[in-house]
Design a binder for these strands. Sequence first.
DNA 1: TACGATTATATGTCTAGACATATAAGTCAA
DNA 2: TTGACTTATATGTCTAGACATATAATCGTA
Lengths: 242, 242
Amino acid sequence: MSLATDAADKPTLYKRIRADIEKRILTGEWPPGHRIPFEHELVARYGCSRMTVNKALSELAQADLIERRRRAGSFVRRPQHQSAVLKIADIRAEIIALGRTYGYELIGHKLRAATAADRERLGVKKAGKVIAISCRHSADNVPFAVEDRLIDLSSVPDAATADFSREPPGSWLLHHVPWTEAEHTISAIVADDRTAAALDIAIGAPCLVIDRYTWRSARTITAVRLLYPGDSHRLVARFKGG
Amino acid sequence: MSLATDAADKPTLYKRIRADIEKRILTGEWPPGHRIPFEHELVARYGCSRMTVNKALSELAQADLIERRRRAGSFVRRPQHQSAVLKIADIRAEIIALGRTYGYELIGHKLRAATAADRERLGVKKAGKVIAISCRHSADNVPFAVEDRLIDLSSVPDAATADFSREPPGSWLLHHVPWTEAEHTISAIVADDRTAAALDIAIGAPCLVIDRYTWRSARTITAVRLLYPGDSHRLVARFKGG
DNA sequence: TACGATTATATGTCTAGACATATAAGTCAA
DNA sequence: TTGACTTATATGTCTAGACATATAATCGTA
């Protein structure tokens, strides 16, 4: 039963090819690892030129639905190992984009030799210097998030002389240090007394937690934990699919 | 695998064109709204065929960096204002991909005329029939998430006859209904007695909440709320940046 | 001036070829 | 069996065209 035949709009051929393959993958008819037909087979099946098939397959590869290997063929990829993607965000820019007044407050700023806990958190072996920062972001004078950050000075020596009393470290890093990889972990906790005070919420109130690690080609740059009031702040994402 | 700066491998021409334009956009040299050169101008500048330029621009458009308008040209897009992106996920597939045993339990299943609250939640005006489902997902026999879902039957009539006692509604929908847009909201709450019982956690323990709305071309398909134990489950995302 | 019809043009899709390149698979020697 | 070499082949990139299509701009008319 073909359900996707939105006869309303006449899809172009390469889109039809792409959709056909996508459907078989999403329904599980072609499971991960399955070799999808070679380009020349699809050319024969659809009666079109190779470039048309190639465009369809290229887009599927770009979307990480299939993997293409020279000489071997194209294979259905395992569904991306997890479900969440969070674009790196600059809280200051985010709040300003929302049309609200951004407020920033540096709570603590320490330069120290990395402790064992610091090294563990940054995932590095060698001892070195780190900067530990905690600060608070607010929107329209209401606490928006508290931030607890560690910067590896051996990766970002310039951070030693940066002035974090006015510019939030996240914004500074985003503008000064190119990153190549990031990892986010989202979880929830209940506020302890310190967190509750910083966010102006009740002890035991829910908090949304984002832990972010940022690397530049296998070098850790920074590890940051962001705490948001769980019942007020929301991470919203809208995006396109199929 | 960083695409922009790998001088090691000689980039192909279309990749160089794409990177050149990308750089100008990311550095702000070409701000949002700026019209980038026409295809025929790039063809002249790079001395290549139109298809080569077209491939570069198509990929930039696919990545939402530029917007292409017939007869008008290609324009730099405003950076996506949101902060979070969460790929749509099928919990069953997710758990199986983790190599754990998937368990499913239907808690409630009701077909009813949409109440005012249902219409509000689905964001629709007209009254119609809806299906309300609640169920529980488990991994290795440990509660993984509870799900509370509303399906708009006027958008998905087939759902009326689907058997949700064995197949989770998320998986069914993913396989039967193409979607075009989704919105996620992530927040945190503390468990009430019912939630605590379902997830086998303490009352007052933190929970991660994902609210997802799915549309197909302006028609609401489903609204779902997922509750995860906040201290055990984690949404992890790793990705590349620039 | 306002509006409808026409035209010009940039992008969208497609073709039928070409050569490049990575690599799976086969071949042969040590 | 192992390693080195060769070969076959699927994908990667590219060309020089073509026609389709949406729409900004222009023109003509009421």
